[in-house]
Amino acid sequence: MSESTEKKMVRLRSSDGEVFEVEESVAKVAKTLQDMLEEDCADAVIPITCVRAPILTKVIDYCKDQVMISSSSSTTNNPNERTEQERKAWGQKFMEGVDSSTLCELLVASNFLNIEGLLNLGVDKMVSMIQGKYPQEIRDMFNVVNDFTPEEEEEIRNQNAWAFERDPYYKKRSSSK
């Protein structure tokens, strides 16, 4: 845990041009970066073209935490080690207050950088956000364009509504009947 004399630093540039300097171990949490670093791109500034600075900050926070947990895992009594429950709680706290657009960007970033743990947190978060929601609510949340014609939507609705679905957001758009 003591400050080692020289830590290799890596520089990352977000899509909006901000440069972040992080320890190599932190960057290597991202499998994509790990591969790049091992293929010797050491001194260059690595461009993360699809991730904006605020998102990259969050991603780096996540990676730093992962390094913190794993760094002393070899020692017998690791104070940073978490139980399953603590891990869950931490994950929830980490994703707390993340809105739908940030969540989308986080999913894209963790997918691109190949950070499985963060991707899972994002997936969990999104599951909890769309669970029980009506189609229109989901579209609004995640900016999904409804590309069904009224007839197509009615058709899917009919196939799946069974006898019970009562959708307050659904207004019959077609005038059949």
Partner: peptide, 17 residues
């Protein structure tokens, strides 16, 4: 995500896009 939501929600998700 779509595999993890409940069946009922998944059914609703069919109508999103």
């Amino acid at each position: 995500i779509l595999l993890r939501v409940s069946k009922k929600s998944r059914c609703r998700c069919k109508r999103v896009s």
